[in-house]
Design a binder for these strands. Structure first.
Lengths: 332, 332
DNA sequence: CTTCAGCACTAAATCGATTTAATACCTAAT
DNA sequence: ATTAGGTATTAAATCGATTTAGTGCTGAAG
């Protein structure tokens, strides 16, 4: 039972709580607590392995050493990886992280953000699904870092990649490398800018090559109903059009589900296609055929988010930063 | 800025904090606060959208409405999924969850558990890597639920599967279904009981079929150095023995890495093998060839953990429960 | 012999809630 | 006129820390 409190120590050792607090917080010398007293207190703490209550501490200092992390789905490899690294980094800096999945639901996202703010988190790192959450966070005065998704015209710290450029660059190179001209593109409902950027980048890459992107190959599938929706859309197009020579999956969800559909229902077609996906999962490398991956620097994103958050917390600067990191295309 | 506190309301409205507290906590009627006062307070709260500080609340009530979740790696699909569902369930019950990865490092695990306890989490759910953590948690009096891994002879709540039976059952059926006799088995260093059970189940299944499991096919690879280690071990065996007809991956890590090795360096061999893995990742279904999966009921595990934890917290019963859930084999 | 500086320490306020025991006021009964 | 009982409300203690502004003591300088 953890019944040791600073007052219990004070009573047992007949010193004041002030003295103990000073010793715990490394201010013993500054306040000239004698070595003898320091030792007595430290020994007691050691013996009864006393841990100061971080709740009480937070209440007085106003800092909870707690950070919230919100992503659409922490079981998704991309977000999971980023979350894990952030958690690791911040733990080293003395912070504990609340990780939560919002399931792309703005309502849910807002609720979780509110709950975290109520818990006095010192800051929130999120891949926002809706602007409402950001507005709420700004009003509440919570230091905020967004990643992955940038809402147009919002003044908030951001860490991520340039989706347009990344998509443009990769597809452009793809088109020079391969003779493919009929590229199926599969995206989820692009409420977020991210997906729109990737699509635009692809279309412009075609143009850059003096080609015209075949509009009818630009598919959108439903996030809530991926499997079914993928099946229907892909099958529909395959029945109409016979000259598909490549597929561009614009995120890891469509990559997986799209590949699944091909693998299960159209395997014969699959063999002849050149595949490329935004995000690069381990799976891309061992799928058959392999899938070229546009890889986001997950660990670097995590590091930048953490660093940025820590600097917001420590230096209290108001200036808004946008950190854009480069992607890497893993050709296969 | 969230400067509204219960005392500010009290001052502004000229009522006592007690009254407000009663109203906030639904005790208004019990303590006969007049409808008029109730409305005044509620309106004020609404207008200034005041949220009581959960820190202060926790300090007094002794409950933080916070739960810790520790797993070897939350970016691993199995743990990630379980963690996500637990987080979801507990959030509905008013709890916020700290999710952390221990990387199979007992030192790290202990440190994180300590940090959580210091933060006064109401309970901890974990897939333990070491007994030390459990000892610490018991001493600290923190309600604890373990899952996935059961340490032999430890008296702690547990939710999971019977690894021996699951492995035995699946391999037994596998052997009757297929003419395979030379089964390569790939596990990571089995410090935890889980893996030992799975291996034992497999060996006994062979025996049950009147066969003898070929010992030299029982491989162990290094967790810290999976890729390299998989490559070396598998290649070594393949060079020596030519009659392998099947592979049993005893967890999702070896399944993925093992498949990767085969796919990259021994693809010709792969085509002729029957594959089965403990855990069933989406990948199993679209790999080529496909992999039969022994699927753990992730969502049910999460639900049971959550329910068990909530009952520990609410009913304060001391009795230790072991909940064993059935697995499902997805034949492919 | 005062005075002042430095040493070693502490009283008490504070953070933002919850909760117990009490109180002031009013009405109805004895 | 006193008492009892109900209604509406509150004072003050508590949780476990941090922090500011002192305090009492000793020894040396003036």
């Amino acid at each position: 039972m953890n019944k040791t409190s600073i007052q219990k120590i004070a009573a047992d050792l007949e010193v004041s709580t002030t003295t103990i607090s000073f010793i715990i917080n490394g201010k013993a010398d500054k306040y000239k607590i004698s070595k003898a007293t320091q030792k007595r207190v430290r020994d007691y703490i050691e013996k009864n392995n006393y841990q100061p209550s971080s709740l009480a501490r937070s209440l007085t200092t106003g800092k909870s050493y707690t950070i919230g992390f919100l992503a659409p789905d922490i079981a998704n490899p991309f977000y999971g990886q980023v979350g894990k690294h952030i958690e690791k980094r911040l733990f080293q800096a003395g912070y504990q992280v609340f990780l939560s999945s919002t399931e792309e639901d703005p309502e849910m996202e807002l609720k979780m953000a509110q709950s975290m703010v109520q818990r006095q988190v010192d800051g929130i790192i999120l891949a926002p699904a809706s602007r409402r959450t950001l507005t709420f966070l700004r009003k509440s005065g919570t230091p905020t870092v967004t990643f992955d998704r940038k809402l147009p015209r919002s003044k908030v710290n951001f860490v991520g990649i340039d989706n347009y450029q990344a998509s443009f660059g990769a597809i452009n190179e793809f088109l020079s490398k391969n003779k493919c001209r009929n590229m199926l593109m599969i995206s989820i409902t692009p409420e977020v800018d991210t997906l729109k950027q990737r699509i635009a980048g692809c279309i412009d890459a075609f143009e850059n090559q003096g080609l015209k992107y075949p509009k009818h190959l630009n598919l959108t599938v439903d996030y809530q109903n991926l499997e079914q929706s993928c099946y229907e859309e892909i099958s529909r197009v395959l029945e109409q059009n016979h000259s598909i020579d490549s597929v561009y999956f614009t995120n890891n969800l469509t990559a997986f589900r799209g590949f699944y559909t091909f693998s299960k229902y159209h395997r014969s077609r699959l063999e002849k296609l050149k595949l490329i996906s935004f995000d690069d999962l381990p799976f891309n490398e061992i799928s058959h055929p392999v899938i070229t991956g546009i890889e986001q620097p997950k660990e670097e994103i995590a590091n930048s988010c953490s660093r940025l958050m820590l600097s917001l917390l420590n230096e209290k600067k108001d200036q808004v930063k946008k950190i854009i990191l480069p992607v890497q295309v893993n050709w296969r």
